[in-house]
Amino acid sequence: MSAKMIEVRWHGRGGQGAKTAALLFAQALLTTGKYIQAFPEYGPERMGAPVQSFNRVSDTPITIHCGITEPQFVVILDPSLLDAVDVTEGVGTQGKVIVNTSFSAEEMAKKLGIAKEQVFVVNASKISTETIGKDIPNTPMLGALVKVIGNLDINGVLDDTKSKLEVKFRSKPEVIEGNLTSIKRAYDEVKNS
């Protein structure tokens, strides 16, 4: 694996959009000029079951097709997964974990058993409820991930997500606006404290 390649693991529950988030993230980064991969972990598919999806992002073509075992970034869509799944598996001492939660980074670090510097929190459920009208944390978490990774183009991500949503929600412009606002808010609100 190239040193410049970014590997991301998403944790969610079936129906929360972990797969969609990984796909949207990949598509958006492609439009900013990156090589990408997005793939879900397929198992028994049922609502509420713990699911994972993955991303690779690179400046050079990606030929690797094995699983991701040591992600630099982990995104947790549902805080209830912390008790059900080993969400920090392979994260080591350098990987960063982003949690959708109302708790602080200190509290989450204690719960996860990793250093506070590795933990980022954002209340994506609250943001999505306020902006989209439903607890759909996957789109705001996109914004949080872009912020935490650091060197990515948030405006490129917003532009691409907008064009994707415009196709999907032609008759519901408020859904598009809500999603974009949620991404922007999570980008601004995600914090390491």
């Binding site: 598509q27 492609l30 991969q37 997005a38 397929y42 990606i62 097709h65």
Partner: peptide
């Protein structure tokens, strides 16, 4: 294509 590994992997 290899099932899931390619069939369900979004790439460039």
């Amino acid at each position: 294509t290899d099932g899931f590994i390619i069939s369900h992997c979004m790439e460039v």
